[in-house]
Design a protein around this nucleic acid. Structure first.
Lengths: 186, 186, 186, 186
DNA sequence: TATGAATGAGCCTTCATTCAT
DNA sequence: AATGAATGAAGGCTCATTCAT
């Protein structure tokens, strides 16, 4: 009945966008388990529309996540510099991303069904990139070669959890520490 | 009446213990948001009894957490060795604790009301210990002196999140990396 | 425009046919209360088209029923034989019909609005036929003359209910019993 | 909050009774699929109470049915007379029961889950009785011996469907016809 | 005329919380 | 002090139905 309602047939696409944005906002505000009603309200759409586009909550969460990832230029031409510098730059960008899109890092741990997709998306999209950078850096003898990109990625993700909720927690310092640890010979 | 009164009071104590154990078990099984009914059932007590002892869920979570911390012999005589060794040992023990009592690390981030207590408890009980070890190690020139115990404690806690849910995530490796990072001169 | 108009009109006809068949199929599969969407899908048409042709669900159910009745050659030249034989043959055919189009017998009892039409249709189309056969048989002294075609028709219909859902219920035996009862002098 | 609410702890039993009666009433009025809310309202209780006593709708339906059956003195000493008379008397009583507790006969055909219990209850409680009567009558040479109690029971049940909804449908006449058919030699 | 996206009422179900006993 | 029955708010989900295109 709202203006958005009148839009109808035209932009199904736009609605999906609206929903993704709304969901992202609500997830930050109220967590990944926020009521569907709330997301619908935030989007100015009916609940049915949410379900039409994202049959299960997991679908929505995954879509939001993917949407966010699209924003992260993971493949962007890395800054010039030594392999280690490139690695650092990428990690910083990754941390920026996680810290900005607060809540997402934590959402990764939602034990609910559908979480697998979330995790899989995360792994499939990012790990190859990090893996490459890590290998290059190790090949150049700048970092240890016994650290798995998988663990590092998750570790960094974890370190970012709670940045907005834990008073005065400095995630970046810890990430720096982690990267510093990389340099030390095992 | 005195005898009876004493008996009664000891009953109350016992119930509290039973509840704490039950809650801990249920938290592991079903998360910190498990139904009160389930906790009561696990304890073999009525729901009213749960509420009598712990008016809010936060009270219960905090109590469980404190209870767990009591189990962690944070003040136990540190192993012999260099300050850094002592630090490492303590961190290992801390990680053991968090990984064993799975869910607790994540619970720290529960945005619910009452979370503050949880966090406060955590900080008050553990930070002083870690702070001391860290200072000693730095004073001995074995580690950097620009890392705050607060961040390190939270960082380690974070790194332990998802050990049981993320497939094949090796938290310990990341913790090692973090500690290795400590050694590197800033 | 005439040619186009004619074509259009024939399309409409075709759609109605398609819908009736689809609805019949879905009714069997999922009951008379099946989602409209499902019927539309089965027909390969839009939901709006279903509503255009059959504004209410009752309209659709009645139409399907009428459609089915059209298939039942109630007026087909009766088999040769005594009036009672003819009666039996018709009843058998009727039972075949009901058992085949399962669900329809039960649908007769749907208390919903629009049910009246269903019942009326049933009565108007079939009762006269049965009435005639019954009267002939009675006139020939082969069966009782105190049984109303109306009751008999409904009774037979009822006996067919649940053939597919009640395990091992033999409706035909009961129908035979009913017909046998007709022969006995009151 | 209502007076019924205040009754609390005392009569859990009474509440179950109240619920059974309420459910029976609502089932007649609105079918076996009536909203739980409506049943709760009819009972003057909260919805949660319904769920506490009858976790699934099937549980409730079965309980209502059983409750009704308890009212039918199926084992009551049959009237004196020939075996066939006894049979007739029992069947009449059974028909009375079904016709009085309208809706129940139809409820037997609810295809939902839990229906099995309903059917089973029906079969287990009544069939043995009817079987005995039928056998006695057949042994006395008063009725056919090739009719199964199971079919007869279901047939009679079916014939009672729609007594209140089908205008002027005389179920009893059809039942009489069925019984008459029993006498005729196959 | 046909379509199917959008809407939102309505029902189900779970659980935190109260409070009579 | 302990109990657990009762309550009802809250949120999930499914369709019937409308109506812009």
């Amino acid at each position: 009945m709202t203006a958005a309602g009148r839009a109808r047939r035209s932009d199904v696409r736009r609605n999906e966008q609206v929903l993704l944005d709304a969901a992202a906002a609500v997830f930050v505000r109220a967590g990944v388990d926020a009521p569907v009603r709330e997301i619908a309200a935030e989007a100015g759409l009916g609940m049915g529309t949410v379900y039409r586009h994202f049959p299960t909550r997991a679908d929505l969460v995954v879509a939001v996540f993917r949407h966010q990832l699209d924003g992260l230029a993971v493949d962007a031409p890395p800054t010039a510099g030594t392999p280690y510098d490139v690695l650092r730059t990428w990690v910083d960008r990754f941390a920026d991303f996680l810290i900005t899109k607060h809540g997402l890092a934590a959402a990764l741990h939602s034990d609910q069904a559908g979480f697998e997709s979330l995790h899989a998306e995360f792994v499939e999209r990012l790990m190859p990139v990090l893996d490459r950078l890590l290998a290059a850096s190790a090949a150049a003898g700048q970092t240890r070669d016994d650290v798995r990109a998988y663990d590092l990625m998750l570790g960094i993700g974890n370190l970012c959890i709670g940045v907005e909720t834990l008073p005065d927690y400095r995630a970046r310092n810890m990430i720096d520490l982690l990267l510093a640890g990389l340099r030390v010979p095992a």
